Computed example of a mutant assay.
Amino acid sequence: MFVPRRTSAVATRTTAASRGRAPALISWREAVPAPVVLLSGAEDLLAQRARQRIRARLRESGADLQIHQLDAATYAAGQLTMLASPSLFGETILIEATGLAAMTDDFLTDALAYVANPEPEVYLVLWHAGGNRGKKLLDALRSGVVPTVDCQPLKRDSDKTDFVTGEFHAARRRIEVDAVRALVNAVGSSLPELASACAQLIADTETTVDADTVERYYGGRVEATAFKVADAALSGNSVRAMATLRHAFATGVDPVPLVAALAMKVRAVAKVYGLRGSSAALAGPLSMAPWQIDQARREASRFTEEQLAAALTALAAADAQVKGESRDPEYAVESAVMLIAGN
């Protein structure tokens, strides 16, 4: 059981802080109650998950919890002090402040004063989505080693893969590596949709989730179709690539995400082309998962350096054409697919 332990939010120091280094970011999965917690980053889902986890940990401790919400963008002087005042009934108080990226001057003043001397039995969670507004407060929090939760959007496929794996691990369920990749390809453009898809698969299935299961649920999505075209083209299967592409056009798929998927796949091939070393060793420097490196290497074996350069050039032209430079964007995509698949 979690037992809240009170410490000063800013007075507490560690060796790292004394040397001027900012505290390391922690995952939302590691967020725990503290006198003050900073959620840093624009991804609403991760900030929401962190807040939910902190609430749950406080309730696990048996605390009679009183929760208040504050919008820093519309804040008026004195609100924080009023909400943090000790309860007559001895309740634990949790204050969740959002909108710090557009905080008022009054909020900045009151928050600076509060974090220097937080109230006992009060927990303040601050969400700053990004930008320079409130820099003085952010500097004070970081110098005080306030726990900082990473809520930055997940942009790399490897981060999205880790997210999916974590969702299934937390639910004590298994999902195959190919299924993780298929799910990220299908709905990975939106983290809330990716989380919802994980929840649906966990709820609807009882055995290990495989790629076929993901295909049944999400194979018709635009993102999934785009990656099917890209996979077929990179593998040299021009018949399947063109058939999938023309079916996509027939069902109204926009050419733009198709080109984007092709470009991402070809860029991955270009990243690994000619590199030596294990996939595990290259994963960090390339910002790719080991399985992505293995796949890109297999696909790279079909290309010479000149052919790869021609593919990248064709995709750059196709990207411009599907965004308005051509009256026939579908032909532009078909030409790029045929060039890549025909190598």
Rank of each mutant, 00 (worst) to 15 (best):
G284F: 09
A289D: 14
P290L: 05
E325M: 09
P329Y: 04
T304F: 00
L315Y: 04
E306P: 02
A281D: 14
E299F: 02
M288D: 01
Q292G: 08
K271I: 02
T313K: 11
G277M: 04
T313G: 03
Q321P: 09
K265L: 08
L315P: 07
A316P: 07
A314I: 12
W291S: 11
L245E: 10
R276H: 13
E299D: 09
L262D: 10
A232M: 10
V269M: 01
N237Q: 12
R297I: 05
M264S: 14
A263M: 14
E325T: 11
A232K: 07
T244E: 12
I293K: 02
V322Q: 02
L245W: 09
G274P: 06
A232W: 04
Q307L: 03
V266H: 05
P329V: 07
R298A: 04
V272D: 00
G277D: 03
A260E: 04
L308D: 03
R240A: 15
R267T: 07
Q292A: 12
M242E: 13
L315A: 05
P257N: 04
Q307D: 00
V272N: 00
A260L: 02
T251K: 03
G284Y: 06
R240I: 15
Q321I: 06
A318L: 02
V259N: 01
L262M: 13
L275R: 01
T244D: 14
V322Y: 00
D328K: 09
S278D: 09
L282F: 08
L262K: 05
V266D: 03
G252K: 05
L312C: 02
D254I: 15
A332W: 11
L315E: 01
V253I: 14
A316Q: 06
K323C: 03
D319M: 06
A296W: 03
F249E: 07
A320M: 11
Y273Q: 00
Y273M: 08
A232V: 15
P285C: 12
K323I: 10
A260K: 06
Y273E: 04
S301V: 11
A250I: 13
A320N: 05
V256W: 02
Q292I: 08
E305K: 06
S238F: 13
A310P: 12
V269C: 01
L312A: 04
L245I: 12
A309E: 01
R327D: 15
R276F: 08
S287M: 10
A318C: 03
A261K: 12
A316H: 05
A289S: 14
A260V: 08
R240M: 13
R302K: 11
E330F: 05
S301W: 11
V253R: 01
E325N: 14
S287D: 14
T251V: 15
F303I: 00
S238A: 14
A268H: 03
R276W: 11
V269K: 01
M242D: 13
V256S: 04
S326Q: 05
A233N: 05
S287L: 15
A243Q: 08
S287C: 15
F249I: 13
R246W: 10
K265T: 14
D319R: 06
A233S: 05
P257W: 01
